[in-house]
Design a binder for these strands. Structure first.
Lengths: 213, 213
DNA sequence: CTTTTCTTGTGATTATTTTCACATTAACAG
DNA sequence: CTGTTAATGTGAAAATAATCACAAGAAAAG
């Protein structure tokens, strides 16, 4: 089984690049094209494909449509993936309104919030009281959830989600969640991402091309 | 020079955990404590520290305050880091309002937007016309920028930023930016993060503990 | 003061990921 | 039909990262 997260992320990038190449009129692509678009080497592209049994034609490369379909199948984009969001602070709200998920077959079907004043069943994505979450997850067989609650509430939220049947979590709270091995947790920590940029900027030598003029 | 991004991210996590441990009353910590808090092994913690010349006491562990200070220095948190945001869609707006950066010594000093109707100098973080960005970057010696513009505008935005003196970019646009080696780019792609969760959830075997009851 | 205990720090080892190198083969040219 | 070219696909090698194993030394106990 493939356990390399980077590899999966690269597959997603290939798929996105393919979409762009198609709009540019490409019918066939070479591993070189995808490598350039994603910023890796062409060997890496082919190795990744080989891991998933994706093959092309010697000298002919890959057919854009066929490749797109294969990647979509691998990434589960051949059917809509229903996802819930918990916590409607700045980030939770932005995610709920975000249009970028639609075209990726990701549908946010409901948001949950502890503050009753923010709840409403009339918004495009219904905002429900957090107490209703377990029932909602069970009734709708939701498997994926996004945690955007304050850090003190994150572990408890995760426990409730997992107890109700959630199998994968995208966690925006800046703590590491504890759970059993069979639940996938992917942490997105915006402070950390920025801190890492800051570190490298402060550390990197100033070269000729970046020296202020 | 350390080039391992994961290692830097772990340092940030140690620092965050330390903060929590301190509020719990810890004065000294062992590598075990930090390892538990962050979800890595204690050897990893010590290896990471050793890379940065951080030492503790045999049998005595590390002093919380001294360790915090060392980590803060390494991560550039001993002074405020000024950052700008470009693009005020859902994500850019959320970031501009987000309170989580303050306590990390990260200050968003201005936001830039192409739509003049959204601009205002009276908001907590001024929202300025994007044309003013290069001058602002130069005048204020801004080194770090966040890109939250639509993907078609992202490369151009990056070029302008870098031309004006930006050295590190946190990029939320779902494309890979091209730039010279001496600019740090960190991509955050929410669709990709979710897709990776979806992949692993769809792929992982259902074990006893996750089987629906 | 001596022994025991506990934790650090790191060289050696193992595992993982990426890159290299090239055999293979489809397409095309002559 | 034959030779040349340009791509794939993949074992082997190299690079990178994580884990193991243990010597060393400080603290505590006796």
């Amino acid at each position: 089984m493939i356990t390399n997260k980077n590899c999966i992320i690269r597959l997603s990038r290939y798929k996105n690049s393919l979409h762009r190449l198609k709009t540019l009129g490409f019918v066939k692509v070479f591993s070189d094209n995808l490598a350039d678009a994603v910023g890796v080497t062409s060997e890496q592209v082919r190795k990744d494909f080989s891991l998933f049994g994706i093959t092309g034609n010697k000298r002919g490369g890959y057919t854009v449509d066929a490749l797109t379909e294969k990647l979509n199948t691998i990434l589960g984009k051949d059917r809509v993936q229903n996802v819930i969001v918990v916590g409607l602070g700045n980030i939770g709200t932005a995610l709920t309104k975000y249009r970028g998920f639609e075209k990726e077959c990701i549908k946010i079907t409901a948001a949950f919030e502890a503050d009753a004043a923010k709840c409403s069943r009339k918004t495009a994505v219904p905002i429900l009281p957090v107490e209703e979450m377990p029932e909602y997850i069970r009734k709708n067989s939701i498997k994926i959830g996004i945690i955007a609650v304050p850090d003190v509430a994150a572990q408890q939220t995760a426990d409730i989600m997992i107890g109700a049947g959630i199998r994968g979590i995208l966690n925006f709270a800046p703590i590491s969640l504890r759970c059993s091995e069979d639940v996938v947790i992917n942490n997105v920590n915006l402070e950390l991402e920025l801190e890492s940029v800051i570190y490298f900027v402060n550390t990197m030598p100033v070269t000729e091309s970046t020296a202020s003029k």
